[in-house]
């Protein structure tokens, strides 16, 4: 067999210079066709649907934190006009009832947040209210976790979290909206 000279073999090397171009092309393709999607949001568990009318439970008024949002995006909290800024603090005070007031929740496990809105309520307002209520519960759980276990709620073990969740359960009941302000 004819022996290829060293010089020949040297020139047979594949030119890798265009590799960068190919990679660039792919890179630009991915840059253009993809979007970094916002995959965050407020997680909600909807109540299951049932065709039977719900049992009417008579709840003590002191345990119910009712939040009404009308078609003008105004808030009515427990019969009094309120605004979004104070909602979180207000809800926290209601749930924990630190001063043992007679018109607030007996204990956190009995507290129920009842939300009702119109069909004309803006979605942004609805979500903001929901967010504040959820925020109030999250802050309370966090405070409780710090008191009991000396660390934030999210760093607690599964059992510890369950314990806190059982003591401060998140109960939001949403009523069927009234048909005001429908587009």
């Amino acid at each position: 067999m004819a022996k290829t000279s060293i010089k020949d073999r040297m020139s047979n090397e594949v030119n890798a210079g265009s590799m960068a171009d190919i990679a660039f092309l792919l890179l630009i393709f991915f840059l253009v066709t993809t979007t970094i999607v916002e995959d965050k949001g407020v997680l909600v568990k909807l109540p299951p649907w049932s065709n039977e009318p719900p049992d009417i439970q008579q709840l003590k008024t002191r345990n119910v934190y009712s939040v009404l949002v009308n078609a003008q995006n105004q808030l009515l909290v427990r019969g009094e006009p309120a605004d979004l800024e104070t909602l979180r603090e207000n809800a926290k005070e209601f749930i924990m009832n630190p001063n043992k007031r007679a018109d607030m929740a007996e204990k956190p496990t009995k507290a129920i947040v009842s939300m009702k809105n119109d069909r004309g309520t803006k979605y942004a307002t609805y979500l903001e209210v929901y967010n504040e209520i959820k925020g109030a519960y999250n802050e309370l759980r966090n405070e409780e976790a710090n008191k009991r276990f000396g660390r934030d709620y999210e760093f607690c073990t599964r059992e510890q979290r369950k314990e806190i969740r059982d003591d401060i359960p998140l109960v939001i009941s949403e009523a069927e909206p009234t048909s005001f302000g429908e587009e």
Binding site: E38, K40, G41, V42, L43, V44, K45, L46, P47, P48, W49, A71, N117, D118, R119, G120, T121, K122, Y123, Y126, L127, Y130, E176, P177, S179, G181, E182, E183
Partner: peptide
């Protein structure tokens, strides 16, 4: 407005899809 959102929520509940994330 919440009208259409509520309708979708009801449809999801009827379909048994209860875990929802409001983006």
């Amino acid at each position: 407005t919440m009208g259409i959102v509520t309708d979708v929520k009801t449809a999801l509940r009827k379909a048994g899809q209860l875990a929802v994330n409001y983006s």
